[in-house]
Design a protein around this nucleic acid. Structure first.
Lengths: 355, 355
DNA sequence: TTGTACGCGTTATCAA
DNA sequence: TTGATAACGCGTACAA
């Protein structure tokens, strides 16, 4: 048998006052006699009253809940960190978040949006949106939306990362160490369609910055050193995407002395290929990761372009909250800077290769 | 301006019937005329009606939501996988989950429990519970509780893992390869207080099984080879717990030829220490992880005792659901079997060491 | 077969 | 300073 927990009415009875008075005491608004206030507060304790957020939400039309749609929290620690940051900020403001994983599948994303609407969330955050249609559904329901990392449509808030600056920092670091044969393993622009809001997609930003940095250093571009694909492809828990690309690169007659990876998980696969080829990192090969998620847990610890995951989540929630409090504010786009974290996987170009 | 979404009343108006009739159509219960049903269904589409889960919950005293309290989703992929499995099964049954991270802090745990009670969750799952008091609060509110991995109190459901079988499998594997100097880096029983329900704590189970296996193989126990502490201790994203222990072990005059780690993250630190000592794994040192989380992403890919994370989550939700549907069922304890996943980090004992 | 009316636990308005 | 009372959106017992 399930016994209901104490309600406002129970407190009122216990204190010998009306529901309205109890409500006033709890919301600390309106005039309440000092003596009554104390009686009510005592009653609240004695019956163990806890407000019912559902009932409150029904009345106020606010669920104090926001929805967070993401790719898949287990596929890349990046998502877990961003989700955690959103949750932290939400909690600090009296909110809770609902998570939903869509696996880059637009039907699943749509399904998640429907669940969120049913549950009356006050706003929805995407990391990142797959289908513009999902955003349109939420706009139709007048729900504030924030897009993290990739901006599909221009009509909502967005929190982005300056990928150009990230790759520039990584390239400068490697060039300074004397590397000239630098390979790039990253996301394929064709697999991540251009949303149309910004001039270049995230993948294009990174790729072009890599090419520009080489040109800037007077290095001829070798197409063999550019390998594009997915960011995460696991088989039996092992990354096979970075592994496969790295095997191909290391088998080249004139193999690269350094590799930039589009994500730390990819970099894990690259390290495995290097180990099997009996190459030591960074002595024989330098490696830079991206995200700074598992970088420190790999061997050697990876130099990596750190995404500002905590700030991404925090800013996204704050934008959502701003629109909850005033639905009419104009959409804002915030771009955050990544930072290069230098660890043990990068070093001077091998002597052999400088000849 | 925030416009309310369509309600039952709107549908009723549109279809020219009463709210009750619409409700009957939607719940597919009670008698409804065929012609009316069609009119109602058409109206539902035309106004874009979506049930309001909060209002429904207020009426039915069911939120279709369960709370999941865990240590910290970003600290170990184990938690993310278990949480995902709970979520998957919840979703399949019309439920959503709320996550809450308590960082092994009983006040935070308490705080989370309060948030869950306020939000009227229908049950709470712990991975794992810190303080018996939190469970007591939920029992007082008549909420079903499921404990995963560690059982603090006997009055709720629990889903456990057979740690004895896990360590036995790992030890048998290493002994078969001829290893005799096998080190153990694991959780310190003193840091994870014994809950009192079972004869031995998780940490005691693992440690004793390790010792028993050695004795069973006629190997004298060397206290220098046993190192106990935390499971995860990250500094700048790198595991320093396993790293520190491994450095001590590898500095021994007669160093171990194999190490069992209490968790994959620890194993990551061990690999780093081995790499710095210019030892190749498994040629010079064999290593077995635990959990099978990042095992495949490390180099070499780790042989690891896989926890049945998907089954843990699935079973936990099913037990919770069973108690939601019938609050009077007796608490059940389900113990699941781990399995040894053999990859590239274990091999025959080095010849040098067999002399 | 359909409609009326009440209550779930709040908040908010209006009188007193 | 306090107390009735009307919503919020839904489900359901009961009446028609």
């Amino acid at each position: 048998m399930k016994l209901r927990s104490a309600t406002l009415m129970d407190v009122a009875r216990e204190a010998g006052v009306s529901k309205a008075t109890v409500a006033r005491v709890l919301s600390a608004s309106g005039y309440v006699g000092e003596e009554t206030r104390q009686r009510v507060e005592a009653a609240v304790k004695s019956v163990g009253y806890r407000p019912n957020v559902m009932a409150r939400g029904l009345r106020t039309q606010r669920s104090l809940t926001i929805g967070h749609l993401l790719i898949e929290i287990t596929s890349n620690p990046f998502f877990a960190h961003v989700a955690r940051a959103v949750e932290r900020e939400a909690l600090a403001n009296g909110y809770k978040t609902f998570l939903f994983n869509h696996n880059k599948n637009s039907e699943q994303e749509r399904f998640g949006v429907e669940r969120f609407i049913e549950r009356q969330v006050d706003a929805v955050i995407f990391t990142y949106p797959v289908d513009a249609e999902s955003i349109a559904m939420l706009r139709a329901a007048d729900m504030p939306v924030v897009q993290i990392e990739r901006q599909r449509t221009a009509d909502t808030h967005a929190v982005l990362v300056d990928n150009v600056a990230g790759i520039e920092a990584a390239m400068a670091h490697l060039l300074q160490f004397g590397h000239r044969r630098i390979a790039f393993i990253g996301g394929d622009p064709a697999l991540f369609p251009h949303p149309g809001v910004r001039a270049r997609s995230l993948e294009e930003d990174r790729l072009h910055t890599y090419l520009d940095a080489l040109r800037g250093a007077g290095v001829a571009i070798d197409p063999d050193l550019v390998r594009l694909g997915e960011y995460v492809r696991l088989e039996d828990g092992s990354d096979v995407e970075g592994y496969g690309h790295a095997r191909a690169l290391l088998a080249l007659k004139d193999r690269p002395t350094a590799i930039i990876a589009g994500c730390d998980v990819l970099a894990g696969g690259i390290l495995r290929a290097a180990y099997e080829a009996h190459l030591r990192v960074p002595d024989d090969l330098s490696l830079v990761g991206f995200d700074d998620t598992i970088a420190g847990q790999l061997t050697p610890r990876l130099t990596s372009v750190a995404q500002p995951m905590a700030e991404l989540g925090l800013t996204a929630f704050q934008l959502a909250l701003a629109s909850i409090e005033d639905p009419d504010i104009a959409p804002r786009t915030v771009t955050l800077a990544p930072s290069l974290v230098i660890r043990d996987s990068t070093g001077p170009v091998p002597v052999r290769a400088t000849r």
